[in-house]
C-alpha cells in the first residue's frame, strides 16, 4: 500500500503547489501517514507566512477528521491510524513551540497512565496515540501508576485532561483513590478526568466521580476535543 504511494512520490513537489492544493495534499498525506511530507508541508506553509495556528487548524486538524470517520467505518485499520498519528506528531513537533510563542492555545494536553496494580497497557497506549493523532500533547506515565506519580505529573505538566486506564475489577477502584486525592489537593476542578478500560462502564464513572468514560480510543478523541472546547468557552 505504502509502496504504491511511494511510486508516484517523486512526481510531486510540495513547494510548487498552490496553498489550497498543498493543504489538500497534506490532508491526503496525513491520511497516508507520511510524516516527512507533513513536516515539509508544515514548514512550507509557515514559510509562506501562515500563522502556526492557521496551519494547525487548516492543514492538520481538519485533515485528521476524515481519519476518525474512516476508522469508524472500518476503512482504516489501527496500525494505519497510528501512522497518521505519527505524521500529525511530526507536524506538531514544528508547530508546538511556535504556538507557544504566539500564545495560541494548543489543541490540548493529556496525562495518561494505567493505574496501580494493573499492567494492561494496550488500550491505554492506543488511547494515548490516538490523542496525539488529534494534536494533543500526551504524557504517558506507563503502567502501575501510583497516585503520587499522577499528582507529580499533573503539577509538572498542567494538562487539560487526566486519563486513567484499568482492565481489572480489582484495580478500577484505584481511580477513585486518585480522584479523591485530586479533590483533597484542590486540583479536581482544573482537570477533565477521563477513564477507560474494558470492564468499566458509565455507572462506574459516576460512582467514582470522573467526568467521562470512553469505551474506545476514537470516542475518547471526540469527547476530549469537545470537552476541552467547552471548558475553554466557559473560561473565556
Amino acid at each position: 500500500m505504502t509502496q504504491e504511494v511511494n511510486e508516484t512520490e517523486e512526481d510531486i513537489i510540495l513547494a510548487e503547489l498552490a496553498d489550497d492544493e498543498l493543504v489538500e495534499q497534506m490532508h491526503d498525506d496525513l491520511y497516508d501517514g507520511l510524516a516527512d511530507e507533513i513536516a515539509e508541508g508544515t514548514q512550507i506553509l509557515l514559510d509562506r507566512d501562515w500563522g502556526p495556528d492557521k496551519v494547525l487548524e487548516k492543514a492538520l486538524v481538519s485533515g485528521m477528521n476524515i481519519v476518525g470517520v474512516d476508522f469508524r467505518d472500518g476503512i482504516l485499520f489501527i496500525p494505519e491510524v497510528l501512522q497518521t498519528a505519527n505524521a500529525m506528531k511530526a507536524g506538531m513537533a514544528i508547530l508546538s513551540p511556535l504556538l507557544a510563542e504566539i500564545g495560541a492555545e494548543p489543541v490540548g494536553k493529556m496525562v495518561i497512565g494505567t493505574v496501580k496494580g494493573d499492567i494492561h497497557d494496550i488500550g491505554k497506549n492506543l488511547a494515548g496515540m490516538m490523542m496525539e493523532g488529534a494534536g494533543f500533547e500526551v504524557i504517558d506515565l506507563g503502567v502501575n501508576t501510583l497516585v503520587e506519580d499522577y499528582i507529580t505529573a499533573l503539577n509538572e505538566h498542567k494538562p487539560d485532561i487526566l486519563g486513567m486506564s484499568a482492565l481489572l475489577t480489582t484495580t478500577m477502584p484505584y481511580m477513585k483513590v486518585v480522584i479523591d486525592e485530586l479533590k483533597s489537593q484542590g486540583m479536581r476542578d482544573d482537570l477533565i478526568v477521563m477513564v477507560g478500560g474494558a470492564p468499566l462502564n458509565e455507572e462506574f464513572r459516576k460512582a467514582i466521580g470522573a467526568d467521562t468514560y470512553c469505551r474506545d480510543a476514537a470516542t475518547a478523541v471526540e469527547v476530549a476535543k469537545k470537552m476541552v472546547g467547552e471548558r475553554r468557552a466557559i473560561a473565556t
Binding site: F77, I122, D216
Partner: peptide, 9 residues
Amino acid sequence: ISDLRTGGF
C-alpha cells in the same frame, strides 16, 4: 490475537 482494525483482543 489482535483485531488490527481496532486493536481489540
